[in-house]
Design a protein around this nucleic acid. Structure first.
Length: 135
DNA sequence: GCCAACGTTGGC
DNA sequence: GCCAACGTTGGC
């Protein structure tokens, strides 16, 4: 089991949208590294739902509901998507500033590779961030 | 609004 | 195959 993190601009697709939809394809990833991570995802694996832009915080947890499949708009193309299902919101969102202030999280790809939009989160970091978020 | 990081493109 | 130019992302 691997844990993940999904980034989204809340103006485009927010946690509120995800809660409303319940299960929704994670579309628009156009980066090979992020795509490869999505390919490695298995049904039932959990991921943080992170808002970029002005918010910059982890707001909830989703789980993989369908493994990687081709972009339906361009099925022959190199890109694809997974489906994610809403699991639960954080009692208290965990901000990027909080994450950066925690030395144990200094190696997180979220910090070290800020442009990556889909990334794995190791168990220790996952548990710590959940705890920081009141879960 | 700026800029660093980084990916992509195109000329050679 | 290299690399300069350019575009995009996301944090500040």
């Amino acid at each position: 089991m691997t844990n993940w993190l999904f980034k989204t601009e809340p103006d485009v697709y927010s946690w509120a949208d995800q809660v409303k939809k319940k299960v929704e394809p994670w579309t628009g990833v156009r980066n090979a590294q992020a795509r490869n991570f999505m390919r490695a995802m298995k049904v039932g694996e959990h991921g943080f739902f992170y808002h970029t832009g002005d918010e910059r915080q982890v707001v909830g947890i989703v789980e993989v509901a369908r493994v990687f499949y081709p972009d339906p708009v361009e099925p022959a193309g190199p890109w694809g998507q997974v489906d994610v299902r809403t699991v639960k919101p954080f009692a208290k969102p965990v901000t990027l500033a909080q994450i950066k202030a925690e030395p144990k999280l200094a190696e997180l790809l979220l910090v070290r590779h800020s442009r990556l939009s889909v990334m794995p989160i190791d168990d220790a970091a996952w548990k710590l961030i959940c705890k920081m978020g009141g879960l």
